[in-house]
Design a binder for these strands. Structure first.
Length: 270
DNA sequence: TGCCAGGCTTCAC
DNA sequence: GTGAAGCATGGC
């Protein structure tokens, strides 16, 4: 702690809901009100004493340069919520329960690694595996660290059959980085490119597009979303109506449904 | 104890 | 292109 502390007035910002949203797996809850969030080589300690106020241990410059983009502070989420079909009571309810949840813009490699691990897996175990990776390698393993690791090592950390996917993905990522093949691209280009990785299919590619690259039109369909679409939308969610923000609404439905299945509101004190 | 999880690859058709 | 099997592991 370097004694720096900023306070910011916020709107539509809820740390607890973002922490429990299934888009990030390394936030650490220190106590009832504080989180430690690692990203971009930095560690942010942040709290939210009231719904419209946050306190963070960073400089105003770091907030502007690193954390405001990370929390996607430039996007007008209330405007997205206002676009929801007033007749769609399910989606209205989902948005209400998810109030304050923003779509994070996380680092690309971390998001790729996390969602390769996420396949056919549950969130508590995804967190555990990523924690074991960090413990085993001393910190979050960058692609070169994974690439110079071995299947056996990764298997010992509980990755199961995903160990080979991750190992291959790391090598692939490094080669493309050296070839400078990463660059600006639209959603369709990125989605296709990501699927060229072994272990990344349509759903994981969409998660990376949404939770790292900021492509809010990405609409990941996992087992939860598929069930929601079948139960409430006759098998088809009207993505076309929400062209540029379907992914945000997808996240609200995902959060809402998981919250309901656990029999609470998602906030211990709500 | 089984079923399931922010699915994917492979193979048969 | 579509469908089904197989996959590692452990949460619930």
């Amino acid at each position: 702690m370097e004694g720096r502390q900023i306070q910011l007035a916020v709107d539509f910002f809820d740390l607890d809901r973002m922490a429990d949203s299934g888009q990030c797996f390394r936030w650490e809850k220190i106590d009832a009100n504080h989180y430690r969030i690692p990203a971009f080589g930095k560690l942010l300690t942040i709290s939210q004493p009231t719904p419209d106020l946050i306190q963070a241990d960073c400089s105003p410059q770091d907030w502007q340069r690193v954390w405001a983009p990370y929390f996607d502070m430039d996007t007008d989420y209330p405007a997205i919520v206002r676009e929801i079909d007033p007749q769609d009571s399910y989606l209205q309810a989902a948005a209400k329960v998810s109030y304050g949840m923003r779509i994070l813009r996380q680092e690309l490699w971390e998001t790729m690694l996390s969602f390769i691990i996420s396949q056919n897996n549950n969130i508590p175990r995804i967190k555990q595996i990523i924690q074991r990776l960090c413990d085993a390698f001393g910190k979050f393993p960058e692609a070169d660290v994974i690439a110079s690791s071995s299947i056996a090592t990764l298997r010992e950390l509980g990755l199961g059959y995903r160990a080979s996917y991750l190992l291959e993905a790391a090598g692939h990522y490094l080669r493309d980085q050296q070839d400078k093949r990463f660059g600006p691209g639209d959603y369709a280009q990125w989605r296709l490119y990501l699927q060229s990785y072994k272990g990344i299919g349509v759903k994981v590619a969409d998660c990376i597009c949404l939770f790292s690259l900021g492509h809010k039109e990405a609409f990941p369909i996992d087992t939860w979303i598929r069930k929601i679409m079948n139960d409430y939308y006759g098998g088809h969610f009207p993505i076309e109506r929400y062209a540029k923000c379907a992914g945000v609404l997808q996240q609200y439905m995902f959060y809402y449904e998981r919250t309901r299945s656990r029999g609470n509101t998602g906030k211990e004190n709500a």
